[in-house]
Amino acid sequence: MKILKLLLLLVVLGIAAATTVIYSGIVNVAADEPHSDLVYWLLEETRETSIKKAAEDIEVPDLVDPELLLSGGVDYNFMCASCHLKPGQKESDMSVGLYPAPPNLTISAESHEGHEHGDDAQKARKNFWVIKHGIKASGMPAWGKTHDDKRIWAMVAFINRLPTLTPEQYQIITAIE
């Protein structure tokens, strides 16, 4: 009986604490103020684990088809470059203003500090899942609501090649004829 009363007390205290935090306004949600290290770590770990788990069974098609690269490049230029940048670009108004900051996809994945990276297929699955489903409260839209899987895989194929492109190559590949 004592354990039940203790559990009930803990639940009531937890609800009271959560209610206080929610309705007091003490949590700063401004995008120009970073989270504490602990909150940032919790959010990053939760996001990475969730994406890895959700994407683990996705089958990766052959992503070396030049047609995928071309069609994915056009979509990337219009839908992604303002946040995830173009070759030779260090920042944009969008990349600076978003928090958490979107990854710069023009540099190799190994250059992104603090992120675990697996094999190419794992990265492709994760990129596909993120592009298709988006990420809540991050500014990353769910393109799967308006784009079919083939079009999303084309963007994944382009993102795979993006770190190797010069600004001139990028301009040629993303130009619309």
Rank of each mutant, 00 (worst) to 15 (best):
E113R: 05
G88E: 04
A121C: 01
A81D: 03
G14N: 13
L10A: 11
V156L: 04
D65M: 03
E44I: 10
M155D: 01
S82W: 06
F128N: 12
F128E: 12
V29W: 11
H147Q: 14
D65C: 04
A17H: 04
Q169H: 07
L98F: 14
Y99I: 03
H133K: 13
K52F: 09
H147K: 14
E177L: 06
I107C: 00
K136L: 11
A18S: 11
M155H: 00
K145M: 05
E110N: 07
N28E: 11
A109Q: 11
L63Q: 05
E91L: 09
H133D: 07
E113W: 08
P87G: 02
V60P: 05
V64L: 11
E168H: 05
A16W: 09
K2L: 06
E177Q: 05
P103F: 06
T46A: 10
T174M: 06
L38Y: 10
W143Q: 00
D148W: 13
V64K: 14
G114Q: 02
S92C: 06
P163T: 04
I22H: 13
V27E: 07
A157M: 02
P61H: 00
R47G: 02
Y76V: 00
P61L: 04
K145Q: 10
A18G: 15
L85D: 08
F128R: 10
L13R: 01
Y40P: 00
S82T: 11
I172V: 15
L43M: 13
E113C: 00
G73C: 03
S82G: 08
S138E: 14
A16E: 07
D148N: 15
V96E: 15
K126C: 11
E44D: 13
K123Y: 03
D37G: 13
R47A: 09
E48A: 08
C80G: 04
A142L: 07
Q89D: 06
N28A: 06
W153R: 07
A30C: 04
